[in-house]
Design a binder for these strands. Sequence first.
DNA 1: TAAATATTTCAATTATCATCGAAATATGGA
DNA 2: TCCATATTTCGATGATAATTGAAATATTTA
Lengths: 239, 239
Amino acid sequence: MNMNSNVAKVASLVSEPSRAAILTALLDGRYHTVNELAHMARIKPQTASFHLKKMLDAQVVSAEKQGRHRYYGIMNQEVAQVMESFLSIAPAAEIKSFKHASEDKAIRLARTCYDHLAGNLGVQITESLKRKGFIAEENDTYSVTEEGIAFFHSIQIDLTSLKKKRRSFSHKCLDWSERRHHLAGALGNAILEKFLERNWIQRIPKTRAIQITPQGMKGFKEIFAIDMDRINKNGSHTF
Amino acid sequence: MNMNSNVAKVASLVSEPSRAAILTALLDGRYHTVNELAHMARIKPQTASFHLKKMLDAQVVSAEKQGRHRYYGIMNQEVAQVMESFLSIAPAAEIKSFKHASEDKAIRLARTCYDHLAGNLGVQITESLKRKGFIAEENDTYSVTEEGIAFFHSIQIDLTSLKKKRRSFSHKCLDWSERRHHLAGALGNAILEKFLERNWIQRIPKTRAIQITPQGMKGFKEIFAIDMDRINKNGSHTF
DNA sequence: TAAATATTTCAATTATCATCGAAATATGGA
DNA sequence: TCCATATTTCGATGATAATTGAAATATTTA
Protein backbone atom coordinates (compact mmCIF):
# COMPACT_ATOMS: atom_id res chain seq x y z
CA MET A 1 0.00 0.00 0.00
CA ASN A 2 2.18 2.73 1.29
CA MET A 3 5.36 2.85 -0.65
CA ASN A 4 7.07 4.59 2.21
CA SER A 5 6.63 1.80 4.67
CA ASN A 6 8.41 -0.43 2.23
CA VAL A 7 11.18 2.07 1.94
CA ALA A 8 11.91 1.94 5.64
CA LYS A 9 11.72 -1.85 5.71
CA VAL A 10 14.02 -2.32 2.81
CA ALA A 11 16.48 0.15 4.26
CA SER A 12 16.98 -1.86 7.41
CA LEU A 13 17.21 -5.12 5.52
CA VAL A 14 19.63 -3.98 2.88
CA SER A 15 22.17 -2.84 5.43
CA GLU A 16 23.42 -6.38 5.97
CA PRO A 17 25.92 -7.57 3.33
CA SER A 18 24.45 -11.03 2.82
CA ARG A 19 20.95 -9.68 2.44
CA ALA A 20 22.19 -7.00 0.11
CA ALA A 21 23.83 -9.68 -2.00
CA ILE A 22 20.66 -11.73 -2.10
CA LEU A 23 18.51 -8.76 -3.02
CA THR A 24 20.92 -7.61 -5.68
CA ALA A 25 20.84 -11.09 -7.16
CA LEU A 26 17.06 -11.00 -7.19
CA LEU A 27 17.07 -7.71 -9.06
CA ASP A 28 17.20 -9.66 -12.29
CA GLY A 29 13.47 -10.04 -11.70
CA ARG A 30 13.65 -13.78 -11.71
CA TYR A 31 12.98 -16.33 -9.01
CA HIS A 32 15.81 -18.31 -7.46
CA THR A 33 16.10 -21.23 -5.08
CA VAL A 34 17.61 -20.97 -1.63
CA ASN A 35 20.66 -22.94 -2.68
CA GLU A 36 21.33 -20.67 -5.63
CA LEU A 37 20.99 -17.53 -3.57
CA ALA A 38 23.23 -18.98 -0.89
CA HIS A 39 25.82 -19.71 -3.53
CA MET A 40 25.60 -16.22 -5.01
CA ALA A 41 25.90 -14.60 -1.60
CA ARG A 42 28.64 -17.06 -0.60
CA ILE A 43 26.89 -18.26 2.49
CA LYS A 44 25.50 -21.63 3.60
CA PRO A 45 21.90 -22.51 2.73
CA GLN A 46 20.90 -22.30 6.40
CA THR A 47 22.08 -18.73 6.55
CA ALA A 48 20.36 -17.81 3.33
CA SER A 49 17.17 -19.42 4.59
CA PHE A 50 17.47 -17.39 7.80
CA HIS A 51 17.75 -14.13 5.87
CA LEU A 52 15.06 -15.02 3.38
CA LYS A 53 12.62 -15.72 6.18
CA LYS A 54 13.32 -12.29 7.60
CA MET A 55 12.79 -10.64 4.25
CA LEU A 56 9.66 -12.70 3.66
CA ASP A 57 8.22 -11.51 6.97
CA ALA A 58 9.03 -7.96 5.98
CA GLN A 59 7.34 -8.54 2.63
CA VAL A 60 10.46 -7.60 0.74
CA VAL A 61 10.63 -10.90 -1.10
CA SER A 62 7.96 -13.38 -2.08
CA ALA A 63 8.18 -17.14 -2.08
CA GLU A 64 6.56 -19.77 -4.19
CA LYS A 65 6.82 -23.45 -3.53
CA GLN A 66 7.14 -25.95 -6.32
CA GLY A 67 7.97 -29.50 -5.38
CA ARG A 68 10.91 -29.64 -3.05
CA HIS A 69 12.15 -26.28 -4.30
CA ARG A 70 11.18 -22.97 -2.93
CA TYR A 71 11.58 -20.08 -5.30
CA TYR A 72 12.23 -16.63 -3.95
CA GLY A 73 11.80 -13.39 -5.85
CA ILE A 74 11.61 -9.64 -5.26
CA MET A 75 8.21 -8.77 -3.83
CA ASN A 76 7.31 -5.92 -6.15
CA GLN A 77 8.50 -3.04 -8.24
CA GLU A 78 8.67 -0.68 -5.29
CA VAL A 79 11.22 -2.79 -3.51
CA ALA A 80 13.25 -3.00 -6.68
CA GLN A 81 13.16 0.77 -6.99
CA VAL A 82 14.44 1.28 -3.49
CA MET A 83 17.29 -1.09 -4.25
CA GLU A 84 18.02 0.81 -7.42
CA SER A 85 18.11 4.09 -5.54
CA PHE A 86 20.86 2.59 -3.41
CA LEU A 87 22.74 1.43 -6.42
CA SER A 88 22.61 4.96 -7.77
CA ILE A 89 24.79 6.25 -4.97
CA ALA A 90 26.72 3.04 -4.36
CA PRO A 91 27.30 1.28 -7.65
CA ALA A 92 27.13 -2.44 -7.03
CA ALA A 93 29.94 -4.76 -7.78
CA GLU A 94 29.11 -7.53 -10.15
CA ILE A 95 27.38 -10.62 -8.91
CA LYS A 96 29.29 -13.81 -9.28
CA SER A 97 27.48 -15.71 -11.94
CA PHE A 98 27.62 -19.41 -12.40
CA LYS A 99 26.54 -21.91 -14.97
CA HIS A 100 23.88 -24.39 -14.30
CA ALA A 101 24.88 -27.99 -14.39
CA SER A 102 24.71 -29.15 -17.98
CA GLU A 103 21.03 -29.38 -18.70
CA ASP A 104 19.17 -30.00 -21.85
CA LYS A 105 19.13 -26.78 -23.80
CA ALA A 106 16.10 -27.78 -25.79
CA ILE A 107 13.91 -28.18 -22.74
CA ARG A 108 14.93 -24.74 -21.53
CA LEU A 109 14.14 -23.15 -24.85
CA ALA A 110 10.65 -24.52 -25.21
CA ARG A 111 8.65 -27.23 -23.50
CA THR A 112 5.20 -28.04 -22.25
CA CYS A 113 4.23 -27.48 -18.66
CA TYR A 114 1.23 -29.74 -18.07
CA ASP A 115 -0.80 -28.61 -21.07
CA HIS A 116 0.62 -25.21 -21.90
CA LEU A 117 3.81 -23.64 -23.19
CA ALA A 118 6.77 -23.09 -20.90
CA GLY A 119 10.47 -22.39 -21.18
CA ASN A 120 11.86 -19.35 -22.90
CA LEU A 121 9.20 -19.50 -25.59
CA GLY A 122 6.37 -19.66 -23.07
CA VAL A 123 7.70 -16.72 -21.12
CA GLN A 124 8.38 -14.69 -24.25
CA ILE A 125 4.86 -15.23 -25.54
CA THR A 126 3.46 -14.14 -22.21
CA GLU A 127 5.71 -11.07 -22.07
CA SER A 128 4.75 -10.17 -25.62
CA LEU A 129 1.04 -10.39 -24.83
CA LYS A 130 1.58 -8.15 -21.80
CA ARG A 131 3.72 -5.70 -23.75
CA LYS A 132 1.13 -5.39 -26.48
CA GLY A 133 -1.60 -4.83 -23.90
CA PHE A 134 -3.55 -7.95 -24.79
CA ILE A 135 -3.40 -9.33 -21.28
CA ALA A 136 -3.02 -7.58 -17.93
CA GLU A 137 -1.52 -8.90 -14.71
CA GLU A 138 -3.81 -9.46 -11.80
CA ASN A 139 -2.82 -11.03 -8.51
CA ASP A 140 -2.33 -14.63 -9.51
CA THR A 141 -4.00 -14.42 -12.87
CA TYR A 142 -3.98 -12.67 -16.19
CA SER A 143 -7.03 -10.91 -17.55
CA VAL A 144 -7.72 -10.31 -21.23
CA THR A 145 -8.13 -6.69 -22.27
CA GLU A 146 -10.49 -5.28 -24.89
CA GLU A 147 -7.65 -5.31 -27.41
CA GLY A 148 -6.82 -8.81 -26.31
CA ILE A 149 -10.30 -10.08 -27.10
CA ALA A 150 -9.91 -8.80 -30.64
CA PHE A 151 -6.43 -10.26 -30.93
CA PHE A 152 -7.36 -13.77 -29.81
CA HIS A 153 -10.35 -13.65 -32.11
CA SER A 154 -8.02 -12.79 -35.00
CA ILE A 155 -5.96 -15.93 -34.39
CA GLN A 156 -9.13 -18.04 -34.05
CA ILE A 157 -9.15 -18.56 -30.32
CA ASP A 158 -12.68 -18.38 -28.94
CA LEU A 159 -12.56 -16.95 -25.45
CA THR A 160 -16.23 -17.46 -24.61
CA SER A 161 -16.00 -21.21 -25.07
CA LEU A 162 -12.84 -21.28 -22.97
CA LYS A 163 -14.53 -19.55 -20.09
CA LYS A 164 -17.18 -22.21 -20.00
CA LYS A 165 -14.64 -24.94 -19.19
CA ARG A 166 -14.52 -26.15 -15.62
CA ARG A 167 -10.94 -25.05 -15.05
CA SER A 168 -8.91 -21.93 -14.41
CA PHE A 169 -9.26 -19.61 -17.36
CA SER A 170 -5.83 -18.03 -17.09
CA HIS A 171 -3.39 -18.10 -14.22
CA LYS A 172 0.30 -17.41 -13.66
CA CYS A 173 2.71 -20.30 -13.60
CA LEU A 174 6.28 -19.96 -12.44
CA ASP A 175 8.80 -21.10 -15.01
CA TRP A 176 11.72 -22.97 -13.43
CA SER A 177 14.21 -22.35 -16.24
CA GLU A 178 13.29 -18.75 -16.84
CA ARG A 179 12.34 -17.93 -13.28
CA ARG A 180 9.53 -15.82 -14.53
CA HIS A 181 5.82 -16.34 -14.88
CA HIS A 182 4.20 -17.69 -17.97
CA LEU A 183 0.58 -18.02 -18.91
CA ALA A 184 -1.21 -21.20 -17.84
CA GLY A 185 -4.82 -22.37 -17.60
CA ALA A 186 -7.37 -22.84 -20.34
CA LEU A 187 -6.05 -19.87 -22.31
CA GLY A 188 -2.49 -21.15 -22.09
CA ASN A 189 -3.69 -24.53 -23.29
CA ALA A 190 -5.60 -23.01 -26.19
CA ILE A 191 -2.49 -21.13 -27.29
CA LEU A 192 -0.41 -24.31 -27.18
CA GLU A 193 -3.02 -26.20 -29.19
CA LYS A 194 -3.23 -23.40 -31.73
CA PHE A 195 0.54 -23.37 -32.28
CA LEU A 196 0.57 -27.17 -32.70
CA GLU A 197 -2.35 -26.95 -35.11
CA ARG A 198 -0.57 -24.31 -37.19
CA ASN A 199 2.57 -26.43 -37.11
CA TRP A 200 4.58 -23.62 -35.50
CA ILE A 201 5.82 -26.12 -32.93
CA GLN A 202 6.12 -29.90 -32.66
CA ARG A 203 6.36 -32.18 -29.68
CA ILE A 204 9.67 -34.02 -29.39
CA PRO A 205 8.81 -37.62 -28.52
CA LYS A 206 9.53 -38.99 -25.04
CA THR A 207 10.33 -35.58 -23.59
CA ARG A 208 8.45 -32.46 -22.68
CA ALA A 209 10.65 -30.51 -25.07
CA ILE A 210 9.13 -28.63 -27.98
CA GLN A 211 10.69 -28.05 -31.38
CA ILE A 212 10.07 -24.75 -33.13
CA THR A 213 9.49 -25.16 -36.85
CA PRO A 214 10.63 -22.69 -39.56
CA GLN A 215 7.01 -21.58 -39.89
CA GLY A 216 7.02 -21.02 -36.14
CA MET A 217 10.12 -18.84 -36.29
CA LYS A 218 8.40 -16.72 -38.89
CA GLY A 219 5.09 -16.60 -37.09
CA PHE A 220 6.51 -15.71 -33.68
CA LYS A 221 8.49 -12.91 -35.27
CA GLU A 222 5.55 -11.51 -37.19
CA ILE A 223 2.78 -11.84 -34.66
CA PHE A 224 4.63 -11.61 -31.34
CA ALA A 225 7.80 -9.75 -32.34
CA ILE A 226 9.88 -12.54 -30.84
CA ASP A 227 13.04 -13.71 -32.55
CA MET A 228 13.51 -17.22 -31.18
CA ASP A 229 16.32 -17.83 -33.63
CA ARG A 230 18.45 -15.09 -32.12
CA ILE A 231 17.68 -16.25 -28.60
CA ASN A 232 18.62 -19.77 -29.51
CA LYS A 233 22.03 -18.74 -30.82
CA ASN A 234 22.86 -16.34 -28.02
CA GLY A 235 22.28 -19.01 -25.44
CA SER A 236 20.80 -16.64 -22.92
CA HIS A 237 20.57 -19.33 -20.33
CA THR A 238 23.97 -19.27 -18.75
CA PHE A 239 23.92 -17.16 -15.66
CA MET B 1 34.71 -9.87 1.09
CA ASN B 2 31.13 -9.65 0.01
CA MET B 3 30.60 -8.41 -3.50
CA ASN B 4 27.85 -5.99 -2.68
CA SER B 5 29.31 -4.59 0.45
CA ASN B 6 29.11 -1.08 -0.94
CA VAL B 7 25.36 -1.26 -1.22
CA ALA B 8 25.17 -2.60 2.28
CA LYS B 9 27.56 0.08 3.45
CA VAL B 10 25.43 2.90 2.19
CA ALA B 11 22.26 1.30 3.46
CA SER B 12 23.73 0.74 6.89
CA LEU B 13 24.51 4.41 7.13
CA VAL B 14 20.82 5.21 7.25
CA SER B 15 19.66 2.32 9.36
CA GLU B 16 21.91 3.09 12.33
CA PRO B 17 20.17 5.49 14.74
CA SER B 18 23.13 7.74 15.48
CA ARG B 19 24.10 8.11 11.86
CA ALA B 20 20.49 8.68 10.91
CA ALA B 21 20.34 11.48 13.46
CA ILE B 22 23.51 13.04 12.10
CA LEU B 23 22.32 12.80 8.53
CA THR B 24 18.94 14.22 9.42
CA ALA B 25 20.68 17.17 11.01
CA LEU B 26 22.78 17.67 7.90
CA LEU B 27 19.74 17.60 5.65
CA ASP B 28 19.26 21.28 6.38
CA GLY B 29 21.95 21.70 3.77
CA ARG B 30 24.30 23.47 6.13
CA TYR B 31 27.65 22.49 7.52
CA HIS B 32 28.04 21.57 11.16
CA THR B 33 30.91 20.87 13.50
CA VAL B 34 31.54 17.51 15.09
CA ASN B 35 30.55 18.78 18.52
CA GLU B 36 27.27 20.14 17.27
CA LEU B 37 26.41 16.95 15.46
CA ALA B 38 27.37 14.90 18.52
CA HIS B 39 25.10 17.05 20.62
CA MET B 40 22.22 16.77 18.19
CA ALA B 41 22.57 13.00 17.98
CA ARG B 42 23.05 12.77 21.76
CA ILE B 43 26.33 10.95 21.56
CA LYS B 44 29.87 11.81 22.60
CA PRO B 45 32.11 13.64 20.12
CA GLN B 46 34.35 10.59 19.76
CA THR B 47 31.40 8.55 18.62
CA ALA B 48 30.25 11.22 16.23
CA SER B 49 33.74 11.49 14.83
CA PHE B 50 33.77 7.73 14.37
CA HIS B 51 30.54 7.81 12.39
CA LEU B 52 31.50 10.84 10.36
CA LYS B 53 34.72 9.22 9.27
CA LYS B 54 32.76 6.23 8.07
CA MET B 55 30.36 8.39 6.13
CA LEU B 56 33.23 10.40 4.73
CA ASP B 57 34.83 7.19 3.43
CA ALA B 58 31.52 6.21 1.89
CA GLN B 59 31.33 9.64 0.26
CA VAL B 60 28.00 10.36 1.87
CA VAL B 61 29.23 13.48 3.64
CA SER B 62 31.98 15.96 2.85
CA ALA B 63 34.30 17.73 5.24
CA GLU B 64 35.94 21.10 5.23
CA LYS B 65 38.52 22.23 7.71
CA GLN B 66 38.61 25.77 8.96
CA GLY B 67 40.89 26.50 11.87
CA ARG B 68 40.35 24.06 14.67
CA HIS B 69 36.85 23.30 13.46
CA ARG B 70 35.92 20.71 10.96
CA TYR B 71 32.67 21.31 9.18
CA TYR B 72 30.70 18.38 7.87
CA GLY B 73 27.94 18.55 5.27
CA ILE B 74 25.93 16.32 2.98
CA MET B 75 27.99 15.24 0.00
CA ASN B 76 25.58 16.19 -2.78
CA GLN B 77 21.98 16.57 -3.80
CA GLU B 78 21.71 12.97 -4.92
CA VAL B 79 22.64 11.67 -1.51
CA ALA B 80 20.29 14.13 0.13
CA GLN B 81 17.38 12.89 -1.96
CA VAL B 82 18.00 9.25 -1.15
CA MET B 83 18.37 10.07 2.53
CA GLU B 84 15.22 12.10 2.57
CA SER B 85 13.26 9.30 0.99
CA PHE B 86 14.24 7.20 3.98
CA LEU B 87 14.23 9.66 6.78
CA SER B 88 10.94 11.28 5.91
CA ILE B 89 9.27 8.08 7.00
CA ALA B 90 11.39 6.80 9.82
CA PRO B 91 12.71 9.94 11.44
CA ALA B 92 15.42 9.29 13.95
CA ALA B 93 15.14 10.58 17.47
CA GLU B 94 14.29 14.24 17.45
CA ILE B 95 17.19 16.52 17.08
CA LYS B 96 17.98 18.53 20.10
CA SER B 97 18.18 22.11 19.03
CA PHE B 98 20.27 24.58 20.90
CA LYS B 99 21.00 28.23 20.84
CA HIS B 100 24.39 29.54 20.18
CA ALA B 101 26.00 31.31 23.03
CA SER B 102 24.91 34.89 22.91
CA GLU B 103 26.80 36.31 20.00
CA ASP B 104 26.60 39.60 18.32
CA LYS B 105 23.57 39.54 16.08
CA ALA B 106 24.89 42.22 13.81
CA ILE B 107 27.98 40.28 12.89
CA ARG B 108 25.84 37.27 12.01
CA LEU B 109 23.58 39.30 9.81
CA ALA B 110 26.24 40.91 7.69
CA ARG B 111 30.00 41.25 7.92
CA THR B 112 33.12 41.24 5.86
CA CYS B 113 35.21 38.13 5.50
CA TYR B 114 38.66 39.34 4.45
CA ASP B 115 37.51 41.54 1.58
CA HIS B 116 34.12 40.17 0.67
CA LEU B 117 30.63 39.88 2.10
CA ALA B 118 29.79 37.19 4.65
CA GLY B 119 27.08 36.44 7.16
CA ASN B 120 23.46 36.04 6.23
CA LEU B 121 23.69 38.78 3.64
CA GLY B 122 26.71 37.23 1.96
CA VAL B 123 25.09 33.83 1.79
CA GLN B 124 21.80 35.24 0.55
CA ILE B 125 23.48 37.16 -2.24
CA THR B 126 25.31 34.03 -3.29
CA GLU B 127 22.16 31.92 -3.17
CA SER B 128 20.30 34.55 -5.17
CA LEU B 129 22.97 34.61 -7.86
CA LYS B 130 22.82 30.80 -8.06
CA ARG B 131 19.03 30.76 -8.12
CA LYS B 132 18.88 33.27 -10.93
CA GLY B 133 21.43 31.27 -12.90
CA PHE B 134 24.05 34.02 -12.92
CA ILE B 135 26.67 31.82 -11.29
CA ALA B 136 27.08 28.05 -11.29
CA GLU B 137 28.74 25.86 -8.72
CA GLU B 138 31.93 24.11 -9.67
CA ASN B 139 34.08 22.04 -7.35
CA ASP B 140 35.54 24.72 -5.10
CA THR B 141 34.62 27.67 -7.24
CA TYR B 142 31.77 29.48 -8.89
CA SER B 143 31.68 30.16 -12.60
CA VAL B 144 29.78 33.02 -14.23
CA THR B 145 27.18 32.00 -16.80
CA GLU B 146 26.26 33.80 -20.01
CA GLU B 147 23.34 35.44 -18.23
CA GLY B 148 25.67 36.27 -15.37
CA ILE B 149 28.04 38.17 -17.63
CA ALA B 150 25.15 40.36 -18.75
CA PHE B 151 23.96 40.82 -15.18
CA PHE B 152 27.30 41.90 -13.76
CA HIS B 153 27.72 44.24 -16.70
CA SER B 154 24.34 45.80 -15.88
CA ILE B 155 25.49 46.62 -12.35
CA GLN B 156 28.78 47.98 -13.65
CA ILE B 157 31.09 45.18 -12.63
CA ASP B 158 33.71 44.50 -15.28
CA LEU B 159 34.53 40.81 -15.26
CA THR B 160 37.38 40.98 -17.75
CA SER B 161 39.41 43.31 -15.58
CA LEU B 162 38.73 41.11 -12.54
CA LYS B 163 40.08 38.07 -14.29
CA LYS B 164 43.36 39.85 -14.94
CA LYS B 165 44.07 40.20 -11.22
CA ARG B 166 46.61 37.85 -9.71
CA ARG B 167 44.17 36.25 -7.31
CA SER B 168 41.37 33.74 -7.31
CA PHE B 169 38.55 35.02 -9.47
CA SER B 170 35.74 33.37 -7.55
CA HIS B 171 35.87 30.63 -4.98
CA LYS B 172 33.63 29.18 -2.29
CA CYS B 173 34.12 30.24 1.29
CA LEU B 174 32.42 28.49 4.17
CA ASP B 175 30.43 30.86 6.36
CA TRP B 176 30.79 30.05 10.05
CA SER B 177 27.53 31.64 11.14
CA GLU B 178 25.39 30.41 8.25
CA ARG B 179 27.21 27.13 7.69
CA ARG B 180 26.84 27.58 3.98
CA HIS B 181 29.14 28.76 1.27
CA HIS B 182 29.35 32.32 0.14
CA LEU B 183 31.14 33.86 -2.80
CA ALA B 184 34.74 34.95 -2.24
CA GLY B 185 37.65 35.95 -4.45
CA ALA B 186 37.97 38.91 -6.78
CA LEU B 187 34.32 38.76 -7.77
CA GLY B 188 33.24 38.69 -4.14
CA ASN B 189 35.42 41.69 -3.47
CA ALA B 190 34.02 43.59 -6.45
CA ILE B 191 30.49 42.98 -5.21
CA LEU B 192 31.38 44.27 -1.75
CA GLU B 193 33.00 47.37 -3.20
CA LYS B 194 30.03 48.02 -5.43
CA PHE B 195 27.58 47.83 -2.53
CA LEU B 196 29.72 50.20 -0.48
CA GLU B 197 30.00 52.53 -3.46
CA ARG B 198 26.24 52.58 -3.91
CA ASN B 199 25.83 53.14 -0.18
CA TRP B 200 23.75 50.00 0.21
CA ILE B 201 25.97 48.97 3.12
CA GLN B 202 28.32 50.74 5.52
CA ARG B 203 31.19 49.44 7.61
CA ILE B 204 30.62 49.63 11.35
CA PRO B 205 33.84 50.97 12.85
CA LYS B 206 36.09 48.71 14.91
CA THR B 207 34.23 45.55 13.92
CA ARG B 208 33.82 43.45 10.84
CA ALA B 209 30.09 43.99 11.05
CA ILE B 210 28.24 45.67 8.22
CA GLN B 211 25.22 47.93 8.44
CA ILE B 212 22.57 47.69 5.74
CA THR B 213 21.22 51.12 4.76
CA PRO B 214 17.60 51.84 3.75
CA GLN B 215 18.77 52.11 0.16
CA GLY B 216 20.39 48.72 0.60
CA MET B 217 17.16 47.16 1.87
CA LYS B 218 15.43 48.43 -1.23
CA GLY B 219 18.18 47.45 -3.60
CA PHE B 220 18.62 43.92 -2.26
CA LYS B 221 14.88 43.40 -2.56
CA GLU B 222 14.66 44.72 -6.10
CA ILE B 223 17.77 43.25 -7.63
CA PHE B 224 18.30 40.08 -5.62
CA ALA B 225 14.79 39.38 -4.29
CA ILE B 226 16.16 39.30 -0.76
CA ASP B 227 14.22 40.85 2.09
CA MET B 228 16.89 41.53 4.71
CA ASP B 229 14.41 43.44 6.81
CA ARG B 230 12.25 40.36 7.31
CA ILE B 231 15.26 38.22 8.05
CA ASN B 232 16.45 40.73 10.59
CA LYS B 233 13.17 40.67 12.49
CA ASN B 234 12.64 36.95 12.37
CA GLY B 235 16.01 36.30 13.87
CA SER B 236 16.67 33.16 11.90
CA HIS B 237 19.83 32.41 13.79
CA THR B 238 18.59 30.37 16.67
CA PHE B 239 18.94 26.72 15.89
C1' DT C 1 10.14 -48.50 0.82
C1' DA C 2 14.69 -46.53 0.79
C1' DA C 3 17.89 -43.13 -0.73
C1' DA C 4 18.80 -38.50 -2.32
C1' DT C 5 17.98 -33.69 -2.35
C1' DA C 6 16.04 -29.15 -0.73
C1' DT C 7 14.90 -26.50 2.94
C1' DT C 8 14.13 -25.19 7.65
C1' DT C 9 14.81 -25.23 12.74
C1' DC C 10 17.68 -25.22 16.75
C1' DA C 11 21.55 -24.29 19.49
C1' DA C 12 26.09 -22.78 20.13
C1' DT C 13 29.78 -20.11 18.51
C1' DT C 14 31.74 -16.25 16.41
C1' DA C 15 32.05 -11.82 14.38
C1' DT C 16 30.68 -7.18 14.18
C1' DC C 17 29.97 -2.82 15.78
C1' DA C 18 28.47 1.14 18.65
C1' DT C 19 29.96 3.34 22.66
C1' DC C 20 32.95 5.92 25.58
C1' DG C 21 37.15 6.84 28.71
C1' DA C 22 41.78 8.08 28.08
C1' DA C 23 45.19 9.96 25.51
C1' DA C 24 47.16 12.07 21.35
C1' DT C 25 47.06 15.80 17.89
C1' DA C 26 46.00 20.29 16.13
C1' DT C 27 44.79 24.97 16.42
C1' DG C 28 43.74 29.59 18.37
C1' DG C 29 44.33 32.95 21.78
C1' DA C 30 46.53 35.21 25.80
C1' DT D 1 55.24 29.91 25.73
C1' DC D 2 51.07 28.00 28.15
C1' DC D 3 46.32 26.99 28.22
C1' DA D 4 41.73 26.09 26.33
C1' DT D 5 39.14 24.03 22.80
C1' DA D 6 38.16 20.88 18.82
C1' DT D 7 38.86 16.68 16.92
C1' DT D 8 40.77 12.22 16.22
C1' DT D 9 42.91 7.81 17.61
C1' DC D 10 43.27 3.90 20.56
C1' DG D 11 41.65 0.34 23.43
C1' DA D 12 38.29 -2.04 26.17
C1' DT D 13 33.57 -3.39 26.83
C1' DG D 14 29.15 -5.03 25.91
C1' DA D 15 25.24 -5.83 23.09
C1' DT D 16 23.48 -7.48 18.95
C1' DA D 17 23.23 -10.34 15.20
C1' DA D 18 25.36 -13.45 11.52
C1' DT D 19 27.03 -17.92 10.82
C1' DT D 20 27.15 -22.79 10.71
C1' DG D 21 26.96 -27.89 12.27
C1' DA D 22 23.53 -31.05 13.48
C1' DA D 23 19.17 -32.58 13.14
C1' DA D 24 14.32 -32.37 11.63
C1' DT D 25 10.99 -32.03 7.80
C1' DA D 26 9.41 -32.41 3.17
C1' DT D 27 9.53 -34.08 -1.40
C1' DT D 28 11.21 -36.48 -5.45
C1' DT D 29 13.22 -40.49 -7.55
C1' DA D 30 14.49 -45.21 -7.98
